[in-house]
Computed example of a mutant assay.
Amino acid sequence: MSKKSRKKSSKTPSGSLTAKKKPVKARATTQTRSAKTQPASAGKSTKTGAKPASHKAASKRLKSSEKASRPAAATSGAKSALAEGQKAPAFRLPRDGGDVVTLSDYAGQKLVLFFYPRADTPGCTREAIDFTRLKSDFTAAGTTVLGISADPLKAQEKFRDKHGLGIPLISDEQHEMLAAYGAWGEKSMYGKTFLGILRTSVLIGTDGKVARIWRNVRVDGHADDVLAAARSL
Rank of each mutant, 00 (worst) to 15 (best):
V145A: 04
A53M: 12
L146N: 09
S65H: 09
G43E: 13
K192Q: 12
T144I: 00
L111W: 03
Q86G: 05
Y106N: 06
R133T: 07
M189V: 08
A57Q: 03
T29Q: 13
K4V: 04
K47A: 14
G182Y: 00
V217D: 04
A42M: 13
E186K: 07
E176K: 13
R61F: 09
A57Y: 06
A58L: 12
T143W: 01
K8S: 10
I129F: 00
R61L: 05
D172I: 11
A53R: 15
Y106M: 06
G97W: 02
D105C: 04
Q174C: 06
P89R: 06
V24F: 07
A90W: 08
T125I: 03
S54E: 14
R160Y: 00
A74Y: 08
D96M: 01
K51I: 14
L134P: 00
D151P: 11
G108H: 11
K8D: 11
M1W: 00
S201N: 02
A230T: 04
M177K: 05
K20Y: 09
A78W: 12
K4N: 03
S16L: 15
A230F: 07
D130Q: 05
D161S: 02
V226L: 06
G142R: 01
S59T: 12
K8R: 13
L227K: 02
E84R: 08
T144S: 09
T139H: 06
P117N: 03
D120S: 10
R33P: 03
S14A: 15
R160F: 06
A81T: 13
Q31V: 10
A229S: 00
S149N: 08
D161N: 09
M177R: 08
K158H: 10
V202E: 05
E157M: 01
D207H: 06
T37R: 09
L203T: 04
K4S: 04
A53G: 13
Y106P: 02
A107C: 00
A141P: 05
P168I: 04
A35T: 08
W214N: 00
P152I: 12
A42Q: 15
T144V: 08
E157C: 02
L17C: 12
I148A: 07
V145R: 05
S16Y: 15
S232K: 00
K158V: 04
A26W: 07
A128Q: 06
A57F: 07
A40M: 14
K25F: 12
A81R: 13
T30M: 07
P94N: 10
L93N: 12
L103H: 05
K63E: 10
H55D: 12
R215F: 11
S54L: 14
T75L: 13
